[in-house]
């Protein structure tokens, strides 16, 4: 598909979002009164500070795959068969201001939830989405998306991708839906001049060099593939893991879940899906107590192997998107960057 390039003045952004949000939910990074920047559902745009200067602390994972979600309700009357009633999900959504890593994470979740067998709840939330992403001219402090090939700008997956050019955004279309937006709300957009195109190209080029951390992802992948990671790396890292699951919860591509029933009354209740973490001790424990993956060391190994080796093997790319969120989350300091560099530099 041919990309259409336009320019959107920053003054017009809120007006455009207001139009798009008219018959859709709007989710964007919002700075709240505590100083946190979080992807937030915006009810009314007035008085809301959409924050494009800081990395959102949360990803969009919870909007497509909620931390806790009722799959269905059941009721059982004494002596009669149980009745299962599925829950409907909500309508279309505009996701605005997602970064390349957030977008890549959604595309990865599509691989997991929308394969041959489709997850009906994810699909419902994913359908009718508009994705308006913004490339990162200045990657944030823990970012390494260039190494995971998921940024700082994306080539696909978005409806519209913005590049910040100071007083205006350079806008590219990625899917037909993006073109429709530009056509439908043409008066907000102006044609991109040669200078705009040059400025955007320059921004993208410079962004590649603006990463603050060197993270040797490809080297780590090769060493994992060739089984060259000493056991000592795993044991050293796992000795600092507190089994909190924070890395998995904050990770935009950790999609493991558990399913449990919650009784509401003696004859009714809900079946609920909740985020789970493969680093938890009980993650693989079977009824009766047998656990095929029973050491913390093995659990940690499994998490990093999954991100950097198994997903490369099965999907030809890492499921780590280089967002760096787990770095600030881990109070044991045994995040994925630490692991990658320990492996890469051979330092134990």
């Amino acid at each position: 598909m041919k990309t259409i390039s336009k320019v959107l003045k920053k003054d017009h952004l809120k007006s455009l979002l207001r139009k798009l949000a008219k018959d859709r939910q709007l989710v964007a990074p919002v700075r709240n009164s505590y100083g946190d920047t979080l992807f937030t559902e915006i009810e009314a745009l007035d008085g809301v500070e959409i924050d494009l200067d800081n990395q959102a602390q949360s990803s969009l994972k919870s909007f497509l795959f909620p931390q806790q979600q009722v799959l269905f309700e059941y009721s059982t009357d004494q002596g009669s068969a149980p009745v299962y009633k599925a829950i409907d999900s909500d309508g279309p959504t505009v996701f605005f201001g997602l970064r390349s890593c957030d977008l890549a994470a959604i595309l990865y979740m599509d691989v997991i939830f929308l394969k041959e067998v489709k997850d009906p709840y994810y699909r419902q939330k994913r359908e009718n989405n508009i994705l308006i992403s913004i490339g990162c001219n200045e990657p944030f402090s823990n970012c390494f998306c260039r190494q995971t090939k998921s940024g700082p700008f994306m080539e696909y997956g978005f409806d519209l991708q913005l590049t910040d050019l100071g007083d205006r955004f350079f806008v590219e279309t990625g899917r037909a839906q993006g073109e429709e937006i530009i056509q439908q709300w043409a008066h907000f957009f102006s044609p991109a001049s040669k200078e705009d195109e040059k400025a955007q190209y320059q921004m993208r080029l410079e962004a590649q060099g603006n990463f603050k951390r060197q993270v040797l992802v490809d080297l780590a992948i090769r060493k994992l593939k060739d089984d060259l990671v000493p056991e000592e790396v795993w044991s050293k890292l796992s000795s600092r893991c507190q089994d909190c699951g924070g890395c998995a919860y904050i990770c935009p591509t950790c999609t493991c879940f558990t399913i449990n029933d919650r009784k509401i009354s003696t004859d009714s209740g809900e079946r609920i899906r909740t985020w789970d973490a493969c680093t938890f001790a009980g993650f693989t424990t079977m009824a009766g107590g047998h656990n095929p993956v029973d050491m913390k060391q093995n659990r940690m190994k499994r998490r990093f192997m999954h991100k950097l080796y198994y997903d490369v093997k099965s999907h030809n790319r890492t499921s780590c998107v280089g967002c760096g969120r787990c770095v600030d989350m881990c109070f044991g300091g045994v995040d994925i960057i630490k692991f990658i560099n320990m492996v890469g530099q051979g330092e134990i």
Partner: peptide, 15 residues
């Protein structure tokens, strides 16, 4: 035999 929650290759438990 593995712990399983979904049966369709999504929940991750039997990885």
């Amino acid at each position: 035999e593995r712990y399983m929650k979904c049966g369709v290759g999504m929940c991750g438990h039997c990885h």
